[in-house]
Amino acid sequence: MADEKIRFEAVSKRYGSLTVLDQLDLSIGAGEVVSIIGPSGSGKTTVLRCLMTLEPVDDGVIWIDGIPLNKELRSGALIEASPAHLRRMRTKLGMVFQNFNLFPHMTILQNCSEPPVYALGAKPTEARSRAVDLLKMVGMESKQDHYPAQLSGGQQQRAAIARTLAMQPEILVFDEPTSALDPETIGEVTEVIRALATKHSYTMLLVTHQIDFARDISDRICFFDKGRIVEQGPPDAVIDSPKETRTQQFLRKVAKAR
């Protein structure tokens, strides 16, 4: 494996008495594409939200490029990260949401060109031309002056991917990016994600219920259950010949549903 990009070290997350992540250890290499699969409620979304600093972690440390994310090193001790530290660390991270979360009062182009201006201090003209390029890359250049509500789900999700890329992240996080889509528009989004996984050097962490798609694009599959990784490894190992009974049960259930 190449250099380590992300490391979860004994990360726990609780909601009241419910332990959602239980001493999670997970290491992801630079440029690696990792898919997380598992039953509903197993904590898949929570892993991504903790990484994106959308949820505070109760125990443990998340490291990015060897720098603690949820903690900060101050005179030799790890203390809770300050908002400024979180802001710095987040510049490496980009997230694509299940519900897109585009800004509905802004055109697709504004959605993609304004955040870099506000958050990174980019020049408006440069941010604009970068946004145009990215929209071209996801096949949305003809829709750049449309508002999100005027677009199909698949188009919105592609625009949302362009908006995430406009922030020039190194790590891309996807939470069920095709779950809110009509079946006929899923393909256009998975094609964009596939291109990101194969033609670019992003480190990617993907939660999905599309097992075939995950097998196609991933270097590694992690099967989650009850806040822990039950089994992980190359796609053919985990998906085609799972060792753990819980993985076998889950894959059988998913196969039946298809």
Binding site: L54, G94, F97, F103, P115, A119, M167
Partner: peptide
């Protein structure tokens, strides 16, 4: 989700 998008896009508070 709009607030969360702002967080992940690092939008400064007043913006």
């Amino acid at each position: 989700g709009q607030y969360e998008a702002c967080v992940t896009l690092n939008m400064p508070g007043w913006r």
